[in-house]
Design a protein around this nucleic acid. Sequence first.
DNA 1: TTGTGTATATTCACTGGTTAGTATACATAC
DNA 2: GTATGTATACTAACCAGTGAATATACACAA
Lengths: 198, 198
Amino acid sequence: MPRPSEPTRERIIQAASALFYNEGIRRVSVDEVAAKAGLTKRTLYYHFRSKDDLVAAYLAARDQPNLAVFRKWFDETEGGVPVKIEAIFRNLARSARHPKWKGCGFLRTSAELANMPGHPAIRIGAAHKKKFEDWLRATFAAEGIADPLQLARQILLLLDGSFAVVLLHRDASYMETAGEAARSLIEMALVGRRGRRC
Amino acid sequence: MPRPSEPTRERIIQAASALFYNEGIRRVSVDEVAAKAGLTKRTLYYHFRSKDDLVAAYLAARDQPNLAVFRKWFDETEGGVPVKIEAIFRNLARSARHPKWKGCGFLRTSAELANMPGHPAIRIGAAHKKKFEDWLRATFAAEGIADPLQLARQILLLLDGSFAVVLLHRDASYMETAGEAARSLIEMALVGRRGRRC
DNA sequence: TTGTGTATATTCACTGGTTAGTATACATAC
DNA sequence: GTATGTATACTAACCAGTGAATATACACAA
């Protein structure tokens, strides 16, 4: 089967994704990934230059799907922007209650590789979060909010904070608390939109 | 030197602390910790039952000092509670600009050990964050805020979010953004304190 | 149609290094 | 002479990456 190169590469990324997300980067060996993908380590090294490359590919494969889910949750919720953003947190809480949930793969990888600041996987994670931040910023700008970037960053901080806190305490209700804080901040910014006063 | 058992144990924890915080848990070997402490691995295993034990001791040693720093930053700042809390974030931003800063040791450990939910180190991390949350709750309760626990958790989410985001982007200004969000939320809660209306 | 060269894809078996934890013995202090 | 504390030397497993060989598909020539 020399020709169909893509399915093999895809299969390796799927295997790596499951293992790296569930057990962490350094805890998973290249042999384990290869075994899970149903091939040998040597074949894996034909498709990826190094383990670091594979880690980067694992995160790159999660970039678009993750963003798409957030947008979907936003779009499918009826109501104003505060409610639609809060819905993202509520849906996230629902995910986080599944026993296999283990936080945000991007953040956990950046925590585990904190001593390698230039690592390709960290750059991919940073770019991913920037994309989400920019989507929030554009959403708030369309609402006429005065400082949409500042608000976008505050919501992002609440979101990533809830990933960290829920992972530590294994208590998904923190995500709903974060969602309420996010709604408050957005509503406050909307009220101040036209310089209204009490 | 058989007698002075405490200094040896202390020295091991100091060495472990520096290495685990800077490089992560799984990246640091017990041999490295022993070497940094100036003794052999066998001696280390006389004082600690296992590497997991040592990791737990590393976090336990950071519990009280960390909380003390936050309280100090709060106490030494002039002004109301919103400003005093914001000062914590500003001081944290200052720390985070030092090149050796690598986020919150508790959160990074919980991210790295996410597949071992009952690990003693994770329990110590969770207890640490609960103590901070409770200190915030008591502080807000003393101000007569209606739901002090909810507000405490929102501030905690912003704090831990800023640890995660700043570690990923290496941009400490997110901490100041989080501080402004925290101040907004507290001020909003203070205004609503007596059920005031516009 | 058939033979053949070449790029693609895969495997087996290995290297050199690391790692958590231990068996045993030795030293010091009281 | 016994508790405590330290060191040497070891085990058994693991792990990232590689050398050398092999198998398949396809393009092109005879």
